[in-house]
Write a protein that binds this DNA or RNA. Structure first.
Lengths: 237, 237
DNA sequence: CGGACCATTGATAATTGTCAAAATTCGTGG
DNA sequence: CCACGAATTTTGACAATTATCAATGGTCCG
């Protein structure tokens, strides 16, 4: 059983295997990082981070999903991201501003791995290739944000909703069927798209009436006419 | 006149002094970078980059300003950024995706400095501190994008417009007075906020009727009641 | 089973988009 | 420096869409 230490490694520190920034480090180096990592559990609704808080570590999601959001001037939540297993956040704050620019809340039970700011910085200097990975990751995140920003600029709400459903269908696909797990509630999706929950509800009902989707339960829908959604997403008026 | 080479340096390669990522490099190292830089001029309306194009260099703005935008499914421009003197773009593409995720067009006569992808990568390996600077810069850009995204989610258009004017008033302030130089046309601002140019026009007229701003010309306005704008920007309904 | 939370639906008001026309501004060439 | 034409902006009337307010219905979980 020469894989003994490997199994401990795998069972307790999965996160290190799930995060692109650590890909490419060899096994020995990974083992050096393992002891630096702290773990934490959260229940649904728990706050992992609050806008304005000082930040002292990078957080890697090992299980579950979270929403990252800011409050608009009128007190509504504007959701920026939904992070799930393997995603991480906090790295932007370590090197630029010191305080969190958004709040993070668990959408379901969540397990995290955390790497302190000091250790993280040491890593950057010890393994220059990690810096390059991070630059790439940040570049990707910027691109995704830019896409989201563009979608927000689409004046046609039906197109925005169709686009969101298609995005979820790619990212949260159920294994066999064309069922989609929605990471957010109706209100959550509305808060992501910048519309009211009533409008969201109405639009989904309409899609169901048109036979394009079927609502299975509050967090699951089925796409019946993917092509129609794609058409809607590119609709001009 | 021992400053001879320094002056050549300063006159022809100002860009290197304007970009945060090169701050902190000593004079000798800066001199090594200078010969790697290529220059280019553009007239108003020229394309510097088109979405989907392969990218082979980082572009630093030495003079003038540009808009970066994507086309929405219906063919409208969604403006993502206005870059001006000292800003740079293209660095995200070098390390992640290979093609441009947005187009860039000159808003006025523009002078650029360009650093090839190969040279840029060499720099990253030779001067690790540049990587750290870039991570910080990207972190800042993400934060700005997140703010913009949040603003877009504000359902009240008056608040979005007030916020935009306040932002411009900080970034494009005229030296003495409280005149603001608008980097974008009415249509451009509308395309940034995701509204029609007619709505933009109407809203600005209304602000002028209310005595909050005065329109000096198409690219200049004067803020008469800054406090009123701040109030509007935080308005809930 | 009960209660809290979430989602849906209806009626109405407010806002913004659309289309069309007129007015203004801007840059260029004489 | 002025005039002219092109481009941009403004305004109006109307249609379409979405927010708001209020009430009802449904779902999830202990």
């Amino acid at each position: 059983m020469q894989s003994g230490h490997d199994c401990i490694h795998c069972n307790n520190n999965l996160c290190i295997h799930k995060v692109p920034i650590f890909f490419g480090l060899d096994h020995d180096n990974l083992l050096k990082i393992v002891p630096l990592i702290k773990h934490e559990n959260y229940a649904k609704g728990d706050r992992l981070l609050t806008e304005g808080d000082p930040i002292d570590s990078v957080v890697i999601l090992n299980q579950g999903s979270v929403k990252a959001f800011k409050y608009t001037p009128d007190g509504r939540e504007q959701i920026l991201y939904v992070f799930s297993e393997g995603d991480f956040f906090g790295e932007q704050f370590l090197l630029s501003s010191q305080t969190a620019t958004y709040s993070v809340e668990a959408l379901e039970p969540v397990k995290t791995c955390m790497l302190s700011k000091a250790d993280f910085n040491k890593l950057l200097y010890s393994y220059p290739e990690i810096s390059v990975k991070i630059i790439a990751e940040l570049g990707g995140r910027i691109a995704r944000m830019e896409n989201a920003f563009q979608s927000m600029g689409i004046r046609n709400v039906d197109a925005r909703i169709a686009g969101l459903l298609l995005e979820y269908s790619e990212r949260h696909k159920h294994p066999d069927s064309d069922l989609i797990h929605l990471p957010l509630s109706r209100e959550g999706m509305a808060n992501y798209l910048g519309i009211t929950r009533e409008t969201m509800s109405r639009k989904l009902s309409q899609l169901e009436n048109d036979g394009i989707i079927v609502s299975v339960n509050n967090k699951t829908i089925k796409i019946k006419e993917r092509q129609a959604l794609i058409l809607l997403a590119g609709k001009t008026e």
